[in-house]
């Protein structure tokens, strides 16, 4: 579904990604782990061009999205993204957060998207919060709304950028449960996370990144139980 070819990204003179080659398959859950500063989030943000790659290409559904002629707004509608800091729109209530893009970008009829919004709210377990403003929600609730907001565009792939890193520990579970339910429905996902237990449980494939490259990849079993690379062993011994 998404091919990444020879992806390089520099911030100024500092290389952040150095030659990434990957294929994210349809229906597959890929979890990216690694120490901070290893380029995990940058790689994820390159997938929907929130970061412009310095060189290399990203092919989404047969289309080279790094091409200048590609309509990035159209492509982003097909890729949902969930951020560490939620980034809900504070001036809109919950239902309007969910409806804003479908109404103005997809130009769906208000009635349909409102029904869909309520449906998504019940899916993330927040039916009663329809009229609330983000400021009155807990972190876990905000993140679940953010997931519902992304799903409202009916994306084909979901990108999660450390979705639980800004949460109080007792709220991590509720967000991970929502993500797990999505996986059951067969959603294609790329997840950057520090939750190793979760990575092991839901990942079809684990990528271990260090200093801008993918050092090791494989099934959770392979990466967590039999890490081959010295850096992976060191990292896992620190976090497990």
């Amino acid at each position: 579904m998404i091919y990444v070819k020879d992806l390089y990204k520099n911030f100024g003179k500092t290389p952040v990604l150095s030659g990434i080659n990957q294929h994210f398959k349809k229906g597959e859950v890929t979890v990216i782990i690694g120490p901070s500063g290893s380029g995990k989030s940058t790689l994820l943000r390159c997938l929907n061009l929130l970061e412009a790659p310095t060189s290399g290409s990203i092919i989404f559904d047969g289309q080279n999205i790094t091409d200048k002629k590609a309509d990035i707004n159209k492509i982003r509608q097909r890729m949902g993204m969930v951020f560490q800091q939620f980034n809900l729109f504070p001036h809109n209530n919950v239902i309007n957060n969910i409806m804003l893009a479908p109404v103005h970008v997809k130009r769906m009829p208000q009635q349909d998207i409102y029904k869909r919004g309520l449906e998504l709210l019940s899916r993330v377990g927040l039916s009663s919060k329809e009229k609330d403003y983000p400021a009155s929600l807990s972190g876990g609730q905000k993140q679940r709304i953010a997931i519902a907001r992304a799903l409202a565009m009916d994306p084909e792939v979901m990108l999660f950028d450390e979705p639980t890193s800004a949460l109080d520990p007792e709220m991590v579970g509720e967000v991970l449960d929502v993500i797990k339910n999505l996986i059951k429905e067969g959603m294609t996902m790329v997840i950057v996370t520090h939750e190793m237990g979760f990575a092991r449980e839901v990942g079809d494939r684990i990528l271990f990144m260090d200093r801008g490259t993918i050092l090791e990849e494989g099934t959770p079993e392979e990466v967590f139980s039999n890490p081959k690379h010295q850096r992976t062993i060191e990292f896992l011994s620190k976090v497990l």
Partner: peptide, 18 residues
């Protein structure tokens, strides 16, 4: 205005001006 607001809006497919 927090930078994340523009990113969230763009990630949903909105153009810069929208």
């Amino acid at each position: 205005v927090d930078k994340g607001q523009m990113e969230a809006a763009r990630s949903l497919g909105m153009s810069r001006s929208l």
